[in-house]
Design a protein around this nucleic acid. Structure first.
Lengths: 336, 336
DNA sequence: ACACAATGAGACAACGTGGACATTTCGTTT
DNA sequence: AAACGAAATGTCCACGTTGTCTCATTGTGT
């Protein structure tokens, strides 16, 4: 099982009895080539298993690839997956390919990973910032590479961005609970340092303040350690003295833990999660939902538009959230 | 907001007062360069926002990239997402980058997409086959590109592959039902043409034959149209005359539909799904589970190993499945 | 002081392709 | 039949990098 050498245009040309430029013309589809010549070239190419070298082609064309990179912290979260799906779909529709890379949630590796991608001359960069500072990208931005920040704003960098209505979404959820009479509402989430969680926490506090609750700190559970299970945190809250009558979660992970902790709890505790998930309807779980696929598509579209007009003003787009009522959020507080 | 020109080694060299080869040495980390010279080069490079051109580098080095492509039909299914995560993790650990592409579930586009990737000189190709025939890849295989078929075997092509123990997994699930006395067991899934579904159906039939049930066809519901909701299919079965006492699903989609249809059904109907999912434990759903992440890692590892030894025999690896009992599969058939 | 090795740095070519331009080969018009 | 324009093909070189050589400079041991 030996390995064949890779053929070039020159090899094909020799076999077909033409110049390499003619082979180039055949494969690039440019210029006029007679049907007979084209035939001979294609036959020779097939025999040699020739395939044009995209690297050389892109180099010759001025280092312009049709690849767009999407960098995220980790692939574990299904939310990011749908975002990626949206990006891919939009890019594919425009003839681009998505290069997906992760930074293993390590802020230090972000720059390294991004650098490697930029060296490969990706046409644009979509990034879910994980480090606090993206100023290292400013040089590349000045070179004309579109940089789109996804899910969180970039730090110290002018860039287009697509984020969720985190604050409003969470505020709306909490308001729907306070409207039912809930006042002791717990907020669980982690890690606390993350932009999205900070925003959602702010929305939570805002809605509580509107009904005069200002001492919510004792219901807030934000941990920096992502390995702390939300389930036990919620159990701890409920089993303490003065337990909350409702719980909201700042993200998927929190929701799943809370749902486990709240199952069959008597009296029932109201719950609303952030991020919709499969079978939430079967479980009757109310959530703050949004279109993750659309978020990806929007980010990709921003990149393509900036590619078309590099001088446009940078744009910040917010993807709307919407409260989805399924029962768990409509549980009334127990009578006093 | 004008766009800066992109600098090359030559530009940096001129500014630093050295030859371009010296710049090359600095950035490639090869050869001996004095500290003073290195400093001047790096300063000049920073000022010009220079970043080495990976395209040119790869071309010069003989068209060898560090990119490995993973092609799948669609990103919608969370299962594939975890496979992709596994691939990415394993590749990243070895210094490779994953290029993710989809074929939009269109068999015709598979070859087009793959061809584009191979033109970009990806180092290896991981593929979830969607078309029936992958013989078009044979030429590339002969050129030494590792080709790994994931989740399904490749058609008409010698290739390494990683698949699940579909047949055994499903047989085990059905056996656990027959052991409880179930005989009327429905199988729902789609699309029927897919390899995994054919295998799982075979496992289902095999387990039923072991207890003397040979007329299972009336309980089998495989539809080619993926838009047909599994939920209504299951409802139809249960509301017909002679309803099944247990249901197994061939995949995620089937499970979700079945779970909705079976909720609060009296008398309760036993259920086992294929593919584990988040919160299945909270719902008490028994499933045939497996490690999707491991599947991706294994596929990536196969590619890396073949890269190291292109002449090795091709390998077919099976990822084990395991029955996870959570309650829904342990419901007894109603007394006659 | 001298030969010799080690180190630092440059000149040049080549990777495979496509752009610019030149040249040949036709078919068509008058 | 001469003249002309379009079609078909070829030549040469550059894209940005690095491998191979070559050469200059410095240090080392005797």
């Amino acid at each position: 099982m030996s390995t064949l050498p890779r053929a070039t245009q020159a090899d094909v040309a020799k076999l077909a009895g033409v110049s390499s430029k003619t082979v180039s013309r055949v494969f690039a589809g440019t210029g006029d080539v007679s049907a007979a010549t084209q035939d001979r070239v294609l036959t020779a190419a097939k025999r040699l298993r020739f395939r044009p070298n995209g690297l050389a082609r892109n180099l010759r064309r001025g280092g312009v690839t049709n690849t767009i990179a999407f960098v995220m912290g980790d692939l574990k979260n299904p939310f990011y997956f749908r975002v990626a799906a949206g990006v891919e779909r939009e890019l594919a529709a425009s003839g681009f390919t998505m290069l997906l890379a992760t930074t293993a949630d390590a802020p230090d590796s972000e720059e390294v990973v991004v650098d490697a991608l930029l060296s490969q001359r990706v046409r644009a960069l979509l990034l879910i910032p994980i480090a606090d500072d993206q100023s290292y990208l400013d040089g590349e931005r000045q070179l004309g590479t579109p940089i789109i920040s996804v899910d969180r704003p970039a730090g110290n960098l002018v860039a287009d961005s697509v984020v969720l209505q985190n604050r409003q979404g969470m505020a709306e959820a909490v308001r729907s609970l306070t409207a039912l009479g809930h006042r002791k509402i717990a907020f669980i989430s982690n890690p606390s340092a993350m932009y999205t969680q900070r925003e959602r926490l702010a929305g939570y506090r805002e809605a509580l303040r509107e009904v005069g609750v200002t001492d919510s700190a004792r219901w807030e559970r934000l941990d920096d350690d992502p390995t702390i299970a939300a389930e036990s945190v919620v159990r701890g809250l409920l089993d303490g003295d003065d337990p909350p009558t409702a719980v909201v979660a700042g993200n998927n992970r929190g929701s799943h833990g809370a749902i486990r902790a709240l199952r069959d709890r008597m009296p029932p505790v109201a719950f609303i999660g952030f991020d919709d998930f499969e079978l939430a309807d079967a479980l009757g779980i109310s959530v703050v939902g949004y279109d993750a696929l659309d978020m990806g598509r929007t980010a990709a579209r921003l990149a393509l538009e900036r590619l078309a007009d590099p001088t446009a003003f940078s744009r910040q787009i917010e993807i709307p959230t919407r409260m989805i009522h399924r029962g768990s959020g409509e549980i009334l507080p127990p009578e006093k």
